[in-house]
């Protein structure tokens, strides 16, 4: 397949009104106008059902989402799912909506998922209703935006190198 024909979906996940869960929305704002031709940007909040068939037809999917606190708020992890799944602890705690792991799992089971899937998980600190991003996560937004843009370029067929772990 030629580089120009590759299509990439960048999905920024999270609720902008829930503290650090808003990191996806903040990255989406920074990505506007910075993605290469062939890359589409979508923001997802709440139930990720729409992502299941929304990612069909793309060659690659890049997701940005907040991760549960583990002592290092703002830390960014790049997870390449080309040959794996998100860890079980990334599962959604509600049966009433699909989380990112379930949405990707279901899309794969339905053969609707792109072959290449990369998730950038940004460790959060607080997820209070109505709260802004914590200082640590706010400070990480510019860097994550750069990483996601570079990943989209790479997956669209560009030559920019992306570090294995940020």
């Amino acid at each position: 397949m030629s580089a120009a024909a590759r299509r990439v979906l960048v999905a920024c996940v999270g609720n902008p009104d829930r503290g650090d869960d808003g990191v996806g929305a903040a990255v989406a704002a920074g990505l506007a106008g910075r993605l290469p031709p062939g890359a589409d940007l979508v923001s997802c909040s709440g139930d990720l059902l729409a992502l299941v068939d929304g990612c069909a037809g793309y060659d690659a999917l890049v997701c940005v989402d907040a991760a549960a606190p583990a002592g290092s708020p703002g830390a960014v992890q790049r997870l390449d799912l080309a040959s794996g799944a998100l860890p079980p602890e990334a599962a959604c705690t509600s049966s009433h909506g699909l989380g990112l792991a379930a949405a990707i799992g279901l899309a794969r089971a339905l053969q609707a998922a792109p072959r290449d899937i990369v998730v950038f998980a940004v460790e959060g600190r607080r997820f209070d209703g109505g709260a802004a991003l914590s200082a640590a996560v706010a400070a990480a937004v510019a860097g994550v935006t750069e990483l996601v843009a570079a990943e989209a370029v790479r997956l669209c067929g560009g030559s920019m190198e992306v570090a294995a772990d940020a």
């Binding site: 059902l49 279901l106 089971a109």
Partner: peptide
């Protein structure tokens, strides 16, 4: 779970998802 079921009953899971989407 439904993800495992989807590998063998993909059409019905797609139907269910399409219905949920229409309701949404």
């Amino acid at each position: 779970d439904a993800i495992q079921m989807a590998r063998e009953h993909g059409d019905m899971v797609r139907n269910g998802l399409a219905l949920k989407k229409a309701g949404n």
